[in-house]
Write a protein that binds this DNA or RNA. Structure first.
Lengths: 127, 127
DNA sequence: ACAATATATACTAAAATTAGTATATATCAT
DNA sequence: ATGATATATACTAATTTTAGTATATATTGT
């Protein structure tokens, strides 16, 4: 994968936020949608472009599609997420807030709604 | 400066190469042009967009315009150049080759042509 | 004042990216 | 088979980015 392709990808704040979320663990489309507050089409298209690029893979669980980072994670991605988490900028705060929102959402859909893909809720200490 | 703006900038291989060159020291437009082998218009436009973004600054020395990175260099740029120099990919090799080409060119214009901006040739051990 | 060199800008055409609406597909529960 | 939910795709319109040609400006040397 070319560095320039990766940069083009993370040059879009939304795509960067997706990578940030997925680094913490797999997620299904609708949950990412809820965290980022974007229309379904947009989310779906961005995910598919990132999958095509080779950064993400997906599999189905029921009606859900679970997306995750390919393993091993592209080093350039890791390095930049790592940098941005330390840094102090508007975008960086957003990334942190997304992670918090992710935690809460997974807890909710797991414990309260009891309606969460296996692979996602497995991440919770007590599921 | 927003991270996404910086990523958009370095998503263009040519702009990345410019930053890579300038991290080694200031250069005038025509020398960068020669190293990267691009038409004058393109070089000029890319430089001006990067200056506008706030990554570069420029001053005149005779008919030359000398460009350099603003000080302090944007951390995200430094981190990425650093990463790419260590990495093994086509783009990374290009960056190395550019630096070598830069060394040779500066030596030539300084010692042989004797036609080099002060600030550029000052970098040479013996000028 | 004039020519040469280095660089920048205006303008236009071409290409790439993004966004939106509608529609399609897959899976599950009834 | 039908309806509901989650997701993907086709198509189009709008926007942004890039590239190219021509021209302008600034500086220097004659």
């Amino acid at each position: 994968m070319e560095a320039s392709e990766i940069y083009k990808c993370i040059a879009d704040p939304q795509r960067l936020r997706i990578l940030n979320l997925l680094e913490a663990g797999p997620l299904c489309v609708c949950h990412m949608q809820e965290i980022l507050e974007v229309p379904q089409v947009k989310m779906s298209k961005q995910l598919s472009s990132m999958k095509q690029l080779g950064l993400l893979k997906a599999h189905r669980e029921g009606t859900w599609m679970i997306y995750k980072l390919v393993d091993p994670v592209e080093g350039l991605i890791t390095a930049n997420l790592c940098y941005l988490r330390e840094a102090a900028c508007a975008e960086c705060n957003q990334l942190q807030r997304d992670l918090t929102k992710r935690e809460k959402l997974i807890l909710k859909v797991t414990k309260i709604d009891n309606d969460c893909p296996q692979e996602v809720c497995q991440q919770i200490t007590c599921c």
